[in-house]
C-alpha cells in the first residue's frame, strides 16, 4: 500500500469514527410504516426513491429552527433528484408550533406525526434535530445531528453519498475539510519570482536578480524561477551563468519554453 493510500485510509477512519451509540447502527432495516400527517391524512414514511431524508425535529427548539432553515437551502440542490424529504415530529408536539416553524423556515416536506415516538425510538434516537437518511434498500444509510457549522454542506454531501454522486473520499473531505492555510516558503518564492519578473521587464536587472535569488532560497525547486534567473543573466550578457540556470529549469520542468528559448539564444550568441 502506498503512502497516499494509507493517508486516505487513516483519514477515512478518522472521519467515520462513530460517536457513542446515539442511533441504530448504519445498515439497520427501517420499516416503512404509514403515519398520520399534520394535514390530517396519512403517508408512508418511505418512498420509492434512492434517498429518503427523514428530518426529526421539535417545534420548541432553536436548533430545530436553525436546522430547518439550513435544510430549506439544501433542498433546492436536490430538485428533480430521487430524493424524498419527510419531516417527523412527536405526536405530542404543539401542532400550531410545527406549522409556524415550517412556514417560517420555508422547509418544504410532508410532516408526519410520530405516535408515541415509535419511529424515533425504533431508530434509537435521543436528540433533536437529526437527519436520518434511508436508502432505497430501506436500510439506515446515514445519521447526522445538527451541527453549528456548514450543516447544509454536510447534509448535502451525505445525501449525495447515498445517491453515489460522491465517493467516500469526497464525503470525507466535506466532513473533515483540509486546513485552510496559505503561504509558506513555496508561496513566498513564487511572490519573489513574480516581483522579479516585473523588475526584469522594467530592465532593473540587478534588482530582478536579487529578487529571483531570494525566491530560490525559499524554494530551490521552483522551475520558473530558475528560468527567470537564466533570462536575467542572459539579458546581462552572462550566458556562462545563464546556461546552468536554464538547464536546472529544464531538469525541474522539461516543458519550460523560457528555458529552452534561453538556451537557444545562448547557443546562438557563442
Amino acid at each position: 500500500m502506498n503512502i497516499a493510500a494509507l493517508l486516505v485510509l487513516v483519514g477515512l477512519v478518522t472521519v467515520f469514527q462513530p460517536a457513542s451509540a446515539a442511533h441504530a447502527a448504519i445498515g439497520t432495516p427501517v420499516a416503512s410504516t404509514e403515519m398520520p400527517t399534520l394535514e390530517g391524512g396519512k403517508a408512508q414514511v418511505m418512498g420509492n426513491v434512492e434517498a429518503n431524508v427523514l428530518v426529526f425535529f421539535r417545534p420548541d427548539q432553536p436548533r430545530s429552527a436553525g436546522a430547518l432553515r439550513e435544510l430549506a437551502r439544501c433542498q433546492k440542490d436536490f430538485a428533480g433528484k430521487s430524493v424524498r424529504w419527510v419531516a417527523v415530529v412527536p405526536s405530542s408536539a404543539s401542532l400550531p408550533g410545527v406549522m409556524t416553524l415550517m412556514r417560517d423556515t420555508s422547509f418544504a416536506a410532508p410532516v408526519l406525526l410520530d405516535n408515541g415516538d415509535a419511529l424515533y425510538g425504533s431508530l434509537g434516537l435521543d436528540l433533536h434535530p437529526v437527519v436520518v437518511i434511508v436508502g432505497r434498500d430501506q436500510k439506515l444509510a446515514a445519521f447526522e445531528p445538527f451541527r453549528v457549522l456548514d450543516y447544509c454542506t454536510v447534509i448535502s454531501a451525505r445525501i449525495r453519498h447515498v445517491l453515489r454522486e460522491i465517493s467516500d473520499a469526497e464525503l470525507g473531505a466535506v466532513l473533515d475539510p483540509p486546513k485552510a492555510t496559505q503561504g509558506g516558503n513555496e508561496q513566498v518564492a513564487r511572490r519573489y519570482r513574480a516581483f522579479a519578473e516585473v523588475q526584469f521587464k522594467n530592465k532593473d536587472y540587478d534588482k530582478a536578480l536579487d529578487s529571483v535569488r531570494k525566491g530560490l532560497t525559499k524554494d530551490p525547486l521552483l522551475a520558473p524561477a530558475h528560468a527567470l534567473l537564466g533570462q536575467i543573466l542572459l539579458a546581462q550578457g552572462n550566458c556562462a551563468d545563464a546556461v546552468p540556470a536554464f538547464n536546472q529549469a529544464l531538469l525541474l520542468d522539461g516543458a519550460s519554453t523560457a528555458a529552452r528559448e534561453g538556451l537557444e539564444r545562448c547557443k546562438s550568441a557563442r
Partner: peptide
Amino acid sequence: PKQHGPVASKDCND
C-alpha cells in the same frame, strides 16, 4: 474512544 456526538463531529462550539 466513545465520543459525544459533537466531539465526533468536531463541533466544540455546539
